[in-house]
Design a protein around this nucleic acid. Structure first.
Lengths: 129, 129
DNA sequence: CTGCATGCAAATCTTTTGCATAAGA
DNA sequence: TCTTATGCAAAAGATTTGCATGCAG
């Protein structure tokens, strides 16, 4: 099967790149709708899935019921705030470290990993006090 | 609200403790049904959610469409095989390491985390060759 | 007795899919 | 012109929920 250009897909990808948070399919849909009023949610899902399969974006399963999408495909950690639900990227260079750790006890081929930290973000910590 | 004993909940918890893999709600349902033929899927979900909220079990969002449940609430990593879908616990003592890593760049309170490694498990690697 | 837990079924919500039409190559 | 992508609506799945009844305290 041969991939064809589509402006809808392009717009979806572009929108994701502008965001540092991790929008859900529905958020993508509502935003891209402003540029392409006739776009359908099905198309958004199809393209998000396609882009994720191509490795151009990351699909995140955070357990809040909806998948989230991230245009940053580099290995990085995610912090999910228990209070406000915000998702924050954690930058760190030592991603290799974690692969080493896993390698210690596991025999098999590790292709990738996803790490979520859960807790209270700085903003919510301040509000409490 | 006051918690009351229920044999169904007890059976669900016990079943989970016997398993080293991470059953889905439906698997729990089918198994506990053997002991309590009239138990309903709703009850299974209600209790799994309750037990997870109490911290007695862990709810895992692995991105295969169904949540998985784990009676082992200690911090540990999960390996998900891309080929057969199997989930394997990775034992490692150095869990603290990962908290240190996150602490380096993030200001806030980290309460817990979940790490999934994706790849090919040993069995599937062998079949291929 | 009083209230939480259950069973059942319906409702919700997210994501996927079938199909006729539009658009890219 | 040939094939992939879209839009729309229906379908599919997983999980939640309302309500009458059952069981624990």
């Amino acid at each position: 099967m041969q991939l064809k250009y589509s402006r809808q897909r392009e717009a979806i990808k572009e929108f994701l790149c502008t965001r540092k948070d991790h929008p859900t399919a529905d958020v993508v849909y509502r935003n891209v709708s402003e540029q392409y009023p006739n776009i359908s949610l099905g198309t958004v899902y199809r393209n998000l899935t396609l882009l994720a399969d191509l490795g151009e974006i990351q699909r995140l399963h955070m357990g809040d019921g909806q998948d989230h999408f991230d245009a940053d495909t580099s290995n990085h950690y995610h912090f999910v705030c228990n209070q406000c639900g915000k998702v924050i990227d954690l930058d760190m260079d030592s991603i290799e470290q974690i692969n080493d750790i896993a390698g210690m006890n596991f025999r098999g081929k590790i292709a990738g990993h996803v790490t979520y930290f859960y807790g209270t973000c700085e903003d919510c910590t301040q509000e409490k006090s």
